[in-house]
Design a protein around this nucleic acid. Structure first.
Length: 585
RNA sequence: GCUUGCGUGGCUCAGUGGUAGAGCACUCCCUUGGUAAGGGAGAGGUCGAGGGUUCAAUUCCCUCCGCAAGCUCCA
C-alpha cells in the first residue's frame, strides 16, 4: 500500500469522500440519493447526503465494506470538464438538484470540472488520487448527524456522514486511541464519578457544584484574586437583576434580548444580567475620574445568566448560568498598548501555570458592520498589533472577525490531548463608553472618552473547570486538589490517635487532610483513594509511629516511600506554594 | 431551534406485551485488616412525564421534558 504515500493526506481524504459517496449509492441501489458537499476536515472528511432511509451504525459498517471493495477494484479516477449548460443538464438528468445548485453558483469564468470513478461522477475542483487503489484502508466511518444544506437553518437538513482517515493504520489507531482517552476523561463523566458536580432536570444546563467541585471553583476565584492583587485590579460586586432601562442603554435589549431572562414586578421590567459590563459602566459614571485614576480595573465574579438554545448547551462547556473571571478596564486610548502587554504577560503566566502549552493568539480586526470610525479602529488595531509584537508571541490575524464594538484578541490553549479550546479574550470597546457617555478629565483639563477593555482569562469558571478536568483527567495538582492527602491508620484502634495528630498538624499548615478511619480493609481504602485521585495517601502503623515517620504514596504510583513527619510537612508546604505561579512569588 | 439517537433503583448497566434484575454505593452484623474490592444479611425502582392502542404497556404509537452527537446560534 506504499502508493498512498505519494499523495498528500488531504488529497487522499478528498478522494475518500467521493469513494464514500459512491459506496453509498451501491449500498442503497433503490434509494434516490442526492449529494451535497463532501469536504476534507481535520482528521478525515464528511459527505452530506439526502435520502429517505435514515443511516444507522450498521449502514456505516456496510458502506465501509463497500468502500474497501471499490478500492480493490482499482477504478481509475478521471477528470472531466463540462460546459455549464451541459453540466447542469447532466446533473438534472441524474436528479442531483443540490449539485445543480452548486454548479449554478460557480463563477462564469471558472472551469467546471468533474471526477469520475466507475459508475460515479461528482462535481469537484480536485485534485484527486489517480486510482481508487491509491486509497488506504486506514479509515473509519464514525457517525452521522444532521447538517443544514449550505449551513443555513432556513434550508433542509441533510444527513452528514463523518469519517476519520489517515495515511497509515498506525495513525488511525493513534487517533482512535486518543478518542477513547477523550471519552475516559469526559468532564461530565468524571464530574459525576468524583462528585464534583451534576445536573438536575429542573435546571437544564445549570450545574450543581458538590463540595469538591465547589472547592475547585472557589480556589480558581482565589487564584485569580491573587493574580489581580499583583496587576492592580479592584474587585467589585454588582446587582443580579436590573431594570430594563439599563439594558436599553447598553444595547443588550435591542441585540441580546433573546438570550436574557426577564422578570416583572412593581410594574417594572427587570432583566437578570447576562454580562457585568453595564454595571461597571454605571460605577465608572458614578464618580468623576481623572487621567491619574486610569487605568481603572474592575474585576467581578458575578453570576451571569444567558438563555442558550437547548441544542447549544453541553456539560460545563456551554451553560445557562456561569461566572466569568471578568474585568473591565477603563483606559485612555494612548495607554492601550502597555495594558495589552501586561495582559498578555498575565495570560501566559497563568496558562502555563495550569500546564497548558501550544497557546495560540488570534487578533480579530474590524468587521463590515462596525461602530466607530476607521481612524479609531486604526489606532486600536495598531495598538493591539504593537502590543502583540512587543510581547514576542506569534499570533494569527483574523480579518473582519472582531466584534462590532472593537477589535479583540482571543487566546486558545491546547490541552493534554492536543485539543484546542478558546479560553481568554481581550476585547476593546468604543461603543459602551459612548452609550453611557463616560468621560474622564485628561491632562489638559478636558473631558475625554475612555476606551473599555473587556477581558477574561479563564473565560467562564464553569467552562474552564470542564476543560481543566479533561486536561488533567481529574487528577488535580496538589495546590488545587479538593483533598490533598488522606491518612489511613493501619489499625483504627491503635493508630488513629497518631493519624489525627498528624492530620491536625498538617491542617494547621493550611492543608486539606482527611483521616480515613472507616471500618474497612486497607486494600479497600487504597483502591478508593486511588480511584478518587487524591494526590497522596499516607499510611500510619506501628513501624511509622516508632520512627515518627509515615508511608507516603503519590497518586498513580505503585509504591510508597517512607518520610519523616517533618519531611512530609516540608514537601506539602512546598507543593502548596503553587497556589501562586512562580513568576509572581 | 433543527436532524438522529437515548432515558430501567444513588451510579454503571442487563431484561421483558402479563406491573422487574445484576454489580457498585447505602444500612446493619461479623471481621481490626500494611498499600487497588474480607464475609454475611438488609433496605431501595409506580422502568423520565402525560396521553393513546390493547383484556393487559416499562416494552408498541403520539406529545412533552431531559441527555448525547452534529448543524445553526454564541449582539
Amino acid at each position: 500500500m506504499a502508493q498512498s504515500q505519494e499523495y498528500k493526506i488531504d488529497t487522499i481524504r478528498h478522494s475518500m469522500a467521493h469513494l464514500m459517496a459512491q459506496a453509498i449509492t451501491h449500498q442503497f441501489p433503490n434509494e434516490h440519493i442526492e449529494f451535497g458537499v463532501g469536504p476534507v476536515i481535520d482528521h478525515g472528511f464528511y459527505y452530506d447526503v439526502e435520502m429517505d432511509h435514515r443511516l444507522n451504525e450498521a449502514d456505516l459498517k456496510n458502506i465501509e465494506k463497500k468502500m474497501k471493495e471499490l478500492i480493490k477494484k482499482k477504478l481509475p479516477i478521471e477528470r472531466k470538464v463540462m460546459k455549464r449548460d451541459e453540466a447542469i443538464k447532466h446533473f438534472e438528468d441524474i436528479n442531483q438538484k443540490l449539485k445543480v445548485e452548486l454548479i449554478s453558483d460557480i463563477p462564469a469564468d471558472e472551469e467546471i470540472s468533474f471526477f469520475t470513478q466507475g459508475d460515479f461522477i461528482d462535481l469537484c475542483r480536485g485534485p484527486h488520487v489517480e486510482n481508487t487503489n491509491n486509497l488506504p484502508f486506514s479509515f473509519k466511518l464514525t457517525h452521522v448527524a444532521g447538517a443544514y444544506w449550505r449551513g443555513s437553518e432556513k434550508n433542509q437538513m441533510l444527513q452528514r456522514v463523518y469519517a476519520v482517515c489517515f495515511s497509515s493504520k498506525e495513525e488511525l489507531q493513534d487517533h482512535l486511541k486518543m478518542l477513547e482517552e477523550a471519552k475516559r476523561r469526559d468532564h461530565r463523566k468524571l464530574g459525576k464519578e468524583l462528585e464534583l458536580f451534576h445536573f438536575e432536570p429542573v435546571a437544564p444546563a445549570s450545574p450543581f457544584f458538590m463540595p469538591k467541585g465547589a472547592f475547585i471553583y472557589n480556589e480558581l476565584v482565589s487564584f485569580m484574586r491573587r493574580i489581580y492583587d499583583q496587576f492592580g485590579y479592584s474587585e467589585v460586586i454588582t446587582p443580579q437583576i436590573l431594570d430594563s432601562d439599563l439594558w436599553h442603554t447598553s444595547g443588550h435589549y435591542a441585540h441580546y434580548k433573546e438570550n436574557m431572562y426577564f422578570s416583572n414586578i412593581d410594574d417594572r421590567e427587570y432583566a437578570v444580567k447576562p454580562m457585568n459590563c453595564p454595571c461597571h459602566m454605571l460605577m465608572f459614571k458614578h464618580y468623576k475620574y481623572s487621567y491619574r485614576d486610569l487605568p481603572l480595573r474592575y474585576a467581578d465574579f458575578g453570576r451571569l445568566h444567558r438563555y442558550e438554545k437547548a441544542g447549544a448547551v453541553a456539560g460545563l462547556t456551554r451553560v445557562r448560568t456561569f461566572c466569568q473571571d471578568d474585568a473591565h478596564i477603563f483606559i485612555p486610548m494612548d495607554k492601550i498598548q502597555g495594558e495589552i502587554q501586561d495582559l498578555m504577560r498575565m495570560f501566559f503566566i497563568c496558562y502555563e501555570h495550569f500546564g497548558f502549552t501550544g497557546i495560540k493568539v488570534n487578533l480579530s480586526t474590524r468587521p463590515e458592520d462596525k461602530a466607530g470610525d476607521d481612524a479609531t479602529w486604526d489606532i486600536a488595531e495598531g495598538a493591539l498589533k504593537d502590543a502583540l509584537d512587543a510581547s514576542g508571541h506569534a499570533y494569527h490575524i483574523k480579518e473582519g472577525d472582531g466584534a462590532f464594538y472593537g477589535p479583540k484578541i482571543d487566546v486558545e490553549i491546547a490541552d493534554a490531548l492536543g485539543r484546542y479550546f478558546q479560553l481568554g479574550t481581550i476585547q476593546l470597546d468604543f461603543q459602551l463608553p459612548d452609550r453611557f457617555d463616560l468621560t474622564f478629565t485628561n491632562q489638559d483639563g478636558k473631558e475625554e472618552r475612555p476606551v473599555v477593555i473587556h477581558r477574561a482569562l479563564l473565560g467562564s469558571l464553569e467552562r474552564f473547570i470542564g476543560v481543566y478536568i479533561e486536561h488533567v483527567g481529574a487528577a488535580f495538582p496538589f495546590w488545587i486538589a479538593p483533598e490533598q492527602a488522606i491518612i489511613v491508620p493501619v489499625n483504627n484502634e491503635t493508630h488513629e490517635a497518631a493519624a489525627s495528630v498528624l492530620a491536625g498538624e498538617l491542617r494547621s499548615l493550611g492543608l486539606r487532610i482527611r483521616v480515613d478511619n472507616r471500618n474497612e480493609t486497607m486494600g479497600y481504602k487504597t483502591r478508593q483513594i486511588q480511584k478518587s485521585k487524591v494526590p497522596y495517601m499516607i499510611v500510619i502503623g506501628d513501624r511509622e509511629i516508632e520512627t515518627q515517620s509515615v508511608s507516603l504514596r503519590a497518586y498513580g504510583s505503585r509504591d510508597s516511600e517512607t518520610l519523616t513527619n517533618a519531611d512530609v510537612k516540608k514537601l506539602f508546604t512546598e507543593l502548596n506554594q503553587e497556589r501562586v505561579p512562580k513568576e509572581l512569588r
